[in-house]
Design a protein around this nucleic acid. Structure first.
Lengths: 226, 226
DNA sequence: TTTAAAGTATGACAAATATCATATTTTTAT
DNA sequence: ATAAAAATATGATATTTGTCATACTTTAAA
């Protein structure tokens, strides 16, 4: 059982507000998991009874819509916590969490987190601020979905991916999504997504090499994203 | 200065978790305002420095999108609090709040609310749960926007309005929105909204009488909303 | 009250997007 | 290594949605 105190990613989440004692306690009760690419950490409707701290790998949070398509609501990075909202709401998960890459995650039971939450004001305040930030993002995201065209949303999403998840050495987006997943992020049909990517490729704003996508002209892309 | 203790709407928000003493204190530092239909309570980007408690009347929370249209993100009822999120995030308001009817609201300064928040665990827990509920709703709303057609969203919205804000004696929706506002809720052009309303009217799922909208066949409407 | 302005309604058309079909490429499993 | 399956790509076409024009109706202001 590794020590939470030495975990590099802890500085990126509310966990950084925990005391040494609390970190030791957490290390004792946590469970570590390896999740393979494509596997779920938890599914919509499940009672998770705790939170997952992402040590390595990125996952998508999805919701199955009425028409049977998976909408990707957000992507989550190492350091972030999963399942905070449903823990506080005392509800089953509203979204599924599925690994986009091989992942390492630690599960911390609800009882433990809630104790920290109640006794450590800095921790609870940080957690609250995170959730408030999520709410702002969700509202903004909703407005984008409602008001922007598919092309604008695609441009916006590509920039988001580069800004938040970085590039490989060859300049391509580090996060590799399938066309279907990318379509699921922007809320469109897979074919429409592919078509618009081709278009951006032809006009040399991006380049495509199999699953690799590189942004060539970020300024123009930003202008398209309106 | 009226007493918060006697305010009927306080049971509908986190304020119900305050003690008698806290309520007295709040009554002393609050400011009451009358807001006329169409007037803003606060605007996107403003620093509100406190929260507003809605005593009477309904307001819309809107965000100006890049294309210049106002998207209605949510509607807020008496009893609910405005500006909680930005207070906790310590950020300017992300959304504007505009009265849909004549309103009575009370402003409570941030300093006071944060004191309650830090000393009264029940209050802070309730506030957090409210925000978590908002986050779930926002995520769900986003998926609707991304995956549903305009017609589905219109049907969904009409049902939402009836379920959450009720009907007048004549059966029409109590909340009267202009066509432009309704379009702003579902994220479409005003003309498209009008056209689809006419269509629903012709097929007798709803009836239109000026600004009054009545749902005639809720079951069919629900089926359309998918 | 009359006039202007705003809101509602509808047609005609254009643009955006989805759907279906099919070909090609890549990945996966045997 | 090879076959099968999945993912990507693209054309053809239908449907949805937006835009512009214009008429009518209601509301608000002078």
């Amino acid at each position: 059982m590794s020590k939470c105190e030495q975990c590099i990613v802890r500085q990126f989440s509310s966990i950084k507000a925990l005391t040494k004692d609390e970190l030791l306690r957490m290390a004792e009760c946590k469970t570590s998991y390896t999740i393979k690419k494509g596997e779920p950490i938890f599914e919509e409707g499940e009672s998770t009874n705790g939170v997952y701290c992402i040590k390595d790998g990125v996952c998508k949070m999805t919701k199955l819509s009425a028409n049977g398509k998976d909408q990707i609501v957000k992507l989550v990075k190492p350091g972030e916590l999963l399942g905070q909202r449903s823990m506080i709401s005392e509800e089953p998960a509203n979204l599924s969490a599925v690994a986009l890459e091989d992942m390492e995650v630690c599960f911390v039971p609800k009882s433990e987190i809630m104790q920290f939450f109640n006794q450590n004001n800095q921790f609870s305040m940080h957690l609250m601020k995170t959730i408030c930030g999520d709410l702002k993002e969700a509202d903004d995201h909703m407005v984008s979905m409602a008001q922007k065209s598919v092309k604008e949303r695609l441009a916006e999403t590509l920039i988001y991916l580069e800004d938040n998840f970085g590039k490989n050495d060859d300049g391509s987006l580090r996060i590799q999504l399938s066309r279907e997943e990318l379509a699921g992020m922007i809320g469109t049909a897979t074919e429409s997504c592919i078509r618009l990517l081709s278009e951006l490729n032809k006009s040399e704003l991006i380049s495509l090499d199999g699953k690799k996508i590189s942004i060539l002209d970020k300024a123009k892309l930003k202008r398209i994203s309106a």
